[in-house]
């Protein structure tokens, strides 16, 4: 067993894990942050996307020990108190979610897209950038609208 210490959503956390423990399992089972989901076993669906040191990663394809010392942000870390993050709000306003299972990963990826591409996103860019996130419910139509609206709402913030 190995001890890992990291910062998750701004708070220091630690735990004893096997080397083989994936970051997503550490988040879900050790920290009980179950907003990050597991939808596949081939690193493709994107339900598990979190930010590690400010960059989007698939937490099903990273060992917890690899994240030792890192700053991790999950879907649970976005809202300011009661107030949804502008990207979360945009998903609500644009009906960008249905069953909600892919949603945390979509939002974490969306924030990464904004960070790299700015606040004015054309449809083609959003569609291309979402290639690592799979949704079965929405046909992506409203997810794309949500990401565009969320990006605009974030203004200069990223």
């Amino acid at each position: 067993m190995k001890n890992v210490e990291l910062t998750v959503n701004g708070s220091p956390v630690s735990g004893e894990v096997e080397s083989r423990t994936l970051l997503v399992h550490f988040l879900r089972e050790h920290l009980r942050l179950t907003g990050t989901h597991i939808g596949c076993d081939t690193s493709q669906c994107g339900a598990c996307v979190v930010h590690v040191n400010g960059k989007s990663v698939k937490s099903c394809t990273m060992l917890a020990v690899q994240a030792d010392g890192a700053e991790v942000t999950t879907i649970e870390g976005l809202a300011h108190g009661e107030e949804l993050h502008p990207m979360q709000q945009a998903f609500m306003d644009n009906h960008g979610l249905q069953c909600g299972f892919c949603t945390p990963g979509m939002i974490m990826s969306a924030l990464d897209i904004v960070k790299r591409n700015g606040n004015e996103l054309d449809e083609a860019t959003v569609r291309k950038e979402l290639e690592g996130n799979i949704c079965r419910c929405t046909g992506y139509h409203n997810i794309v609208k949500s990401v565009q609206a969320g990006a605009r709402a974030m203004g200069g913030e990223s």
């Binding site: 879900r28 089972e29 009980r32 942050l33 179950t34 907003g35 990050t36 989901h37 597991i38 999950t74 879907i75 649970e76 809202a79 949804l84 979360q88 998903f91 609500m92 306003d93 009906h95 979610l97 909600g100 299972f101 949603t103 945390p104 939002i107």
Partner: peptide, 21 residues
């Protein structure tokens, strides 16, 4: 009407079967 169920999903507070421990 904007969906009443959205808030819990957006906050990562949905409760799916595998979330229960």
């Amino acid at each position: 009407v904007k969906r009443k169920e959205d808030r819990r999903f957006l906050l990562g507070k949905g409760r799916y079967t595998d979330d229960i421990q």
